[in-house]
């Protein structure tokens, strides 16, 4: 191994970033840019210096690819779906759909045409993204290095951008349906009149700031915990795969054991993300 252990780990945890570097920037290889340049980052420092308007090309590529795998497969089956005796593939797809449908029906009693497809998309997409974790950590990055691509992180759910984008989308949907179902006043009431309430109007008003503070914090905590839970689990799992990959031939049994455990983790994380989404969305539909 040419690199140091920490270099190896850092390399595996660095996204392929495309963004603009400012003029007079000293690059990782020592060269100096004369103009502001759009380019791929060649070090973690460069990626950081690109600021907000940079893109993790590898995360987006794998995420989109897996998303298309999901919709492509499901649409392929959906087009041929028959109410007669289903074939093997339709059977498998149907069992997933039915599983999601049951999960939605268990925690959400209202009528909303978005929640079930949303849940299905979240479950399948996140599952596929997590599944990339089971591909040995050096295969695709190694291939990318041969092709001259400096970084390649193939598990999109180990990128906080990906997980936070999804949890923030869920959060926006939550706010949208909250206002749509109950109005701004109802939303304010949900935030200000619980958990402490009083039948005395004066106390009610006095308790409002306290309630507002508590409820707002717990509200803000929802998307953050939702996104970071998935990110943290996958990132930690990935890190352990990388650590295992560094210990030579002894990695084989360890890798196998961790991979088997991870099959459970990736499914569980996808399921948790879906279930919490459904729960959050059903919460804003409910009357207290």
């Amino acid at each position: 191994m040419a690199e140091t252990a920490s270099g190896y780990i850092q390399h595996h945890l660095q996204n392929l970033t495309y963004g603009q570097l400012p003029a007079d920037y000293v690059r990782a290889d020592g060269s100096v840019l004369s103009d502001a340049t759009w380019t791929f980052a060649h070090s973690a420092q460069e990626a950081a210096d690109m600021g907000f308007w940079a893109l993790h090309v590898d995360s987006m590529f794998w995420s989109l690819l897996l998303g298309f795998v999901f919709v492509g497969l499901f649409q392929f089956v959906a087009k041929r779906a028959t109410s007669g005796v289903p074939g093997g593939l339709q059977n498998a797809i149907e069992s997933i759909v039915e599983f999601v449908d049951t999960s939605v029906k268990e925690s959400f009693s209202g009528k909303n045409a978005v929640i079930a497809p949303l849940g299905l998309t979240i479950f399948c997409w996140i599952f596929l993204m997590n599944l990339m974790d089971l591909i040995p950590v050096d295969w695709i990055p190694g291939l990318a290095t041969l092709l001259g691509i400096p970084y390649m992180k193939i598990v999109p759910s180990t990128d906080p951008n990906i997980t936070m984008a999804m949890s923030l989308s869920v959060f926006m949907l939550m706010i949208f349906y909250w206002i749509k179902v109950k109005g701004v006043g109802g939303m304010f009431g949900d935030l200000a009149l619980h958990p402490f309430s009083s039948s005395n109007p004066v106390f009610k008003v006095l308790l409002m700031p306290v309630n507002l503070l508590l409820e707002t914090v717990s509200l803000i905590a929802k998307p953050i915990s939702l996104g970071l839970r998935l990110f943290g689990n996958m990132y930690a799992g990935e890190l352990i795969f990388i650590l295992i990959a560094m210990i030579g031939y002894a990695q084989l049994p360890l890798h196998f054991g961790w991979a088997v455990l991870h099959i459970l983790v990736i499914t569980l994380q996808a399921y948790i993300f879906m279930t919490l989404t459904i729960v959050y969305l059903s919460m804003v539909h409910e009357e207290h």
Partner: peptide
């Protein structure tokens, strides 16, 4: 970084696609 915006757009697209073309025929068949 901007990946968060890209992923949000992708997410919206896939959910929309699923809602439009995947969920109704499958649940209808069921």
């Amino acid at each position: 970084n901007a990946t968060i915006i890209g992923q949000t757009i992708a997410f919206a697209f896939f959910v929309w696609f699923c809602m439009k073309f995947v969920w109704p025929p499958l649940i209808g068949a069921l």
